[in-house]
Design a binder for these strands. Structure first.
Length: 489
DNA sequence: TGAAATGTTGGGGCG
DNA sequence: ACGCCCCAACATTTC
């Protein structure tokens, strides 16, 4: 048995009669407004907060590299927060959560296991297995509403079919919304029971990259509950300008709460309450939170969409396979400045501005005609806010094969988007510095700049910066033809 | 949470 | 003064 050095284990009277509980942390890495934690802290005489690292269980959708970086830092933060309240985070590295939780419960004599629910189908199924294993051992599993605004699986459109269109879904969800009063973080947590296994350290999980590519992540992110609250307060202060400025990637006008929300470092209910005003900014922000709900809802009802298009016609869409093109896109070497800027921002910071996500995704799936799934996999590995539901929905949305999808013929022109949303070329200069010597006007499409302009900027296209990997007009026409072939019979 | 092509309108230059 | 043309600005349609 091991306890914190500050609190030597005192002999505990009536051990057998004390109520021992487990609190299973997953993607609710916070103390405030945490239903499972509040209940466990209220009821248990002794409590084991535990995190089980079992990535093999999640198959191909185990956290990617950027998510693992975040998880490492977030677990450290949670660990400290628990220690400050007289407890400790027990970290286990296992191949099977169900066995690990049941074994731990038996070892410490726990009669109840508390957790906040997850909604990804494969994780919900895993949790059902855990609950069954516990029931067989005579241990009660108690789950609580998790990382959504409401448990919306039962919402149905007319005809009892699941919603497939955002707007009616959002209307129904907002109408059904009942936010319970927020739960304060417990000031003090129940002590740990005796008989606790050693566990491993957060470091032992080897979540951090072996080669240190994470400098850029450290610069802009502060994983953990405190960092989440800082972002929320900053967001609150900027909310009135949100509707107008959120589309400009050069501005820090978006909330950047997505990774904090994904890991549950702040409750989505608290986030919603911060944006409950009547202004256009608050309304626009709430719509984004409802897109997050919609993504979870669609994945729940159509779990196969993580691999296959929701629109079945797209099963036979002739996606191209081209490793070199994909690599150029991934590493920001397409020769299209706004695309390269976004992909480099992603590589460096683990995040990309939402407007630019749409642009790079449209470019990949339409101009390059590479599969949305190839894009989704890259995002999965590189985004700190990678979320299976949102990633799946948004990629299919852009590709035109998903729920409430952009029609196939809606093809973003990356040059026009760049001119419209980064008119001064600041975002481009920041992320594609080799173009900074060009004037802002020429920066959006350097291949169209007159030779003397390029010469004056000392820019040799094809050497200092790539020539475009696709002819935008021709690629657009080819994409339209390919997509049109789907609807012809 | 488009873009491009096509259609319409109206002001102004000009014979 | 008038018709004609050009074309920018805006609207509609098509993909």
């Amino acid at each position: 048995m091991r306890q914190g050095s500050r609190s030597p284990p005192a002999p505990v009277p009536h051990v057998a009669n004390r109520a021992v509980s487990l609190l299973w942390f997953r993607r609710d890495l916070r103390l405030e407004d945490n239903a499972a934690l509040a209940a466990a802290a209220r009821e248990a005489d002794a409590l084991v907060p535990v995190y089980v690292h079992a990535p093999a269980e999640e198959g191909e959708w185990a956290p990617g590299a950027a998510s693992r970086w975040w998880l490492h830092a977030s677990l450290k933060a949670l660990s400290q927060a628990l220690a400050a309240r007289g407890s400790r985070l027990l970290v286990l590295e296992e191949s099977c959560s169900s066995e690990a939780i049941a074994r731990l419960a038996r070892a410490v004599g726990a009669r109840t296991v508390h957790w906040n629910r997850l909604y990804e189908p494969h994780l919900a199924a895993r949790d059902a297995m855990v609950a069954r294993a516990l029931a067989e051992a005579g241990i009660e599993a108690r789950s609580y509403p998790g990382h959504l605004l409401l448990e919306h699986a039962s919402l149905r459109s007319a005809g009892n079919a699941p919603y497939r269109i955002y707007t009616p879904f959002a209307r129904a969800a907002e109408k059904a919304l009942r936010l319970p009063a927020p739960l304060p973080a417990p000031a003090r947590l129940p002590p740990l029971p005796p008989g606790l296994p050693e566990g491993v350290s957060v470091e032992d999980l080897r979540l951090r990259p072996r080669i240190p590519w994470d400098a850029g992540l450290h610069e802009i992110w502060k994983p953990g509950e405190a960092g989440a609250h800082e972002r929320l307060e900053a967001m609150r202060a900027r909310l009135s300008g949100y509707a107008e400025k959120r589309d400009a990637p050069a501005l820090a006008a978006t909330s950047r709460l997505s990774p904090h929300l994904h890991f549950g470092e702040i409750s989505v209910a608290r986030t919603w309450r911060a944006a409950c005003g009547t202004g256009a900014g608050a309304a626009a922000f709430r719509r984004e939170l409802l897109w997050r709900e919609f993504a979870s809802y669609v994945l729940h009802h159509y779990p196969h969409t993580v691999r296959e298009p929701l629109d079945r016609r797209f099963a036979r869409f002739p996606w191209r396979e081209d490793a070199a093109l994909l690599a150029a896109w991934q590493r920001g070497r397409t020769g299209i400045p706004i695309v390269d800027a976004g992909m480099r921002e992603l590589w460096r910071t683990g995040w990309m501005h939402n407007r630019v996500r749409m642009i790079v995704a449209s470019f990949l799936t339409k101009h390059l005609r590479l599969s949305w799934l190839a894009g989704a996999r890259w995002f999965w590995d590189t985004l700190v806010d990678a979320d299976l539901a949102a990633n799946t929905l948004n990629w299919q949305w852009v590709a035109g094969c998903g729920a409430d999808a952009a029609p196939y013929f809606r093809i973003f022109n990356p040059v026009l988007q760049s001119q419209k949303f980064d008119s001064r070329g600041e975002y481009l200069a920041r992320w594609v510095p080799e173009l900074a010597s060009l004037g802002p006007a020429a920066r959006h499409a350097p291949w169209q700049a007159p030779p003397e302009v390029l010469a004056a900027a000392r820019l040799r296209l094809g050497e200092d910066y790539p020539l475009p990997v696709a002819d935008l007009a021709a690629a657009r026409a080819e994409a339209l033809a390919a997509y049109r072939a789907l609807t012809a019979r």
